[in-house]
Simulated scan of single mutants.
Amino acid sequence: MSISVLLVEDDIDLASTIVDYLEIEDITCDHAANGVLGLTLIEQNNYDVILLDINLPRLDGLSVCQQARNASNETPVLMLTAKDTLADKIAGFNAGTDDYLVKPFEMDELVIRIIALSKRRSKQITTLAIENLTLDLQTKSARSDVKELKLTPITFKLLKMFMQDTNEPISRESLMRGIWGDFQPDSNSLKVHIHHLRKQFERCDVHAAITNKPGLGFILHGTKQL
């Protein structure tokens, strides 16, 4: 499978190393040295994965990611950054990033993450799972090892977002934007749909839970081991 990548990185030496290594792995890679050029290339081309540094000249990486998401660009984004605090990671996920890799990193790990993200975009991944819960992305159905969950179109979208980022906090704003886009209902709507999803977990004896972490957002995590 041919993979096309955009690297937005202002460290020219690091960028050259990454581009050369990816070429060896048969991954084509365009490069932008600042956020404005990076955003322009994102708008003009179709990439499988975007590699995005946070500290960029002209337009920082978080803003690049957020503007791309606001323009309905769903290309998976892997943040490359020296910042490794929880607050930094939360800021990245809230901006719409899909994965996070802290510098310095091994090139082999970078390649593995690129391949995984490209499969998500190309829909080669047809099922997501956590504990005894499986979500079928093709039939838009979910079941535990006991029975099938009753999902509405909204709760399917909600569960999909949670299962793509298990054990990671997703902010209320990110969930609402991912489900309703720019035409968002009142804030109680999200609460109602999460309540419905939790009830389905109980009905089907799902070994997972959706927990609200104040200041961070909602997290889907396994409970069987607890």
Rank of each mutant, 00 (worst) to 15 (best):
I18T: 02
R58M: 13
M163L: 14
R120W: 07
S174W: 15
K123E: 10
Q67W: 09
H193A: 14
F201N: 08
L14M: 06
F156V: 04
P185G: 14
I54H: 06
L110N: 09
D165H: 14
Y21P: 09
D60I: 07
Q184F: 02
N132M: 02
L175I: 11
T28P: 05
H207F: 11
T75V: 07
L220N: 10
S118A: 10
A32E: 01
T40D: 09
N132L: 02
K224E: 03
T211A: 08
I18G: 03
K89R: 12
D145I: 02
I154Q: 06
Q200V: 11
K83F: 15
S72P: 12
I3N: 08
I219C: 00
Y100R: 10
I50Q: 01
L197K: 06
H31I: 03
N132T: 04
D205V: 12
E74P: 09
N70T: 11
V77N: 10
E9I: 04
S118Y: 07
L128Q: 05
V5T: 12
A71N: 14
Q184L: 03
R69H: 06
D48N: 05
I50R: 01
A68S: 15
S141C: 05
D20Q: 05
D48S: 01
R198F: 13
E43V: 00
I54T: 06
D88N: 14
P214T: 04
M79T: 06
A142W: 03
A95S: 12
V192T: 15
I3W: 00
G217F: 04
D60L: 07
S72N: 15
T223H: 04
D136G: 03
